[in-house]
């Protein structure tokens, strides 16, 4: 079951500026969905559409299997959000900020103390929010978003501007919310490295189009399928014939032989075969593609389309 599901979602700011092209977002319930893409790819616009902050022009948005435009208030009651920079009342304290949202969400007052406890801001007392560090503001924004114990959390680049320690803290907090409180999280970022340790599913958007969507494991498999092995021997021509018995896609260069990444068993067998044929092996090296490289290639592929 999908917590968020969009079909053919398109949006344009002007006749010449189409920012989203038929976005099909599918966020499974209970997942942490990393919504990745470079700046200007359409992430924030998509998330704003999911929250009803921009009027939908084309396509369908379903939250919890219900159309957003028909059940806006009911669906927002189950959703918490933080879009771009933290939105907080700087002249008020953390507790007063949450008191405002407690009124708006019509949730019990004890939720305020619980939310502050979860984000580690229970001891801020009478300190005004404008005196908070960016990390504290981000955490208070999360507290605002989880105050009413939503089933879905939509976070737009929540780690922006945080130091490495703050990023780790935020990651731990989101993992806790997902595993212990069962909240489905959609988190956008322009850096894969920043969220690859957090997410279970990913969607990659580039130039307004979804270029990849699936589990993180699927992305990792893609990484493995696109990785290569390099072999350098005393006799590359003879070695290539032996390699071809293991894998067909072999390229012989002046210096080395390159081939798709083999399984551990095949690597051992290839090595044995080369030794049996008395071919000296100088180098046998797996060149794994980084996830980041796959990500960049997916993005660049769309840009050049």
């Amino acid at each position: 079951m999908y917590c968020v599901h969009t079909t053919a979602l398109s949006h344009r700011f002007s006749a010449s500026q189409q920012v989203l092209k038929e976005i099909e977002l599918a966020v499974p319930t209970g997942s942490i969905y990393g919504f990745l893409g470079p700046n200007g790819a359409g992430k924030t616009t998509t998330l704003r559409l999911l929250l009803g902050l921009i009027k939908k022009q084309q396509g369908e948005i379903l939250l919890f299997d219900q159309p957003l435009h028909l059940h806006r208030l009911q669906l927002l009651r189950q959703t918490g959000s933080m879009i771009e920079v933290p939105s907080l009342y700087g002249h008020l304290t953390a507790k007063e900020n949450l008191l405002i949202w407690q009124k708006l969400y019509q949730c019990p007052k004890p939720h305020i103390a619980e939310a502050l406890q979860i984000v580690g801001l229970a001891d801020t007392g009478n300190k005004r929010v404008r005196q908070f560090s960016l990390g504290m503001k981000q955490r208070l924004s999360i507290a605002t978003a989880i105050l009413h114990q939503p089933a879905l959390l939509i976070l737009d680049e929540p780690t922006n501007g945080l130091d490495p320690y703050g990023i780790i803290e935020m990651r731990d907090l989101l993992k806790t919310l997902n595993t212990q409180h069962g909240i489905t999280i959609v988190i956008s970022s322009h850096l894969l490295a920043e969220i690859e340790k957090l997410v279970t599913h990913t969607g990659i958007i580039s130039a307004g189009r979804i270029v990849f969507q699936g589990t993180l494991n699927e992305l990792v498999s893609r990484q493995q399928s696109e990785s290569q092995m390099i072999l350098q021997t005393a006799n590359n021509t003879e070695a290539a014939q032996i390699v071809k018995t293991f894998v067909s896609d072999v390229v012989i260069n002046a210096q080395h032989i390159s081939m798709p990444l083999l399984s551990k068993e095949k690597i051992a067998a290839l090595h044995r075969a080369l030794v049996q044929h008395k071919i000296d092996v100088y180098e046998m090296n797996a060149i794994k593609k980084e996830l980041e490289t796959i990500f960049m290639e997916l993005i660049n592929q769309t840009k050049h389309d």
Binding site: R48, G52, L73, L76, S81, S87, L88, Y89, G90, L104
Partner: peptide
């Protein structure tokens, strides 16, 4: 201006209130 200055409109409009 309280809403504009604190960048609050977007947050306020995601609250479940008409």
């Amino acid at each position: 201006q309280i809403e504009f200055k604190n960048n609050m409109w977007k947050q306020l409009h995601t609250a479940p209130v008409p």
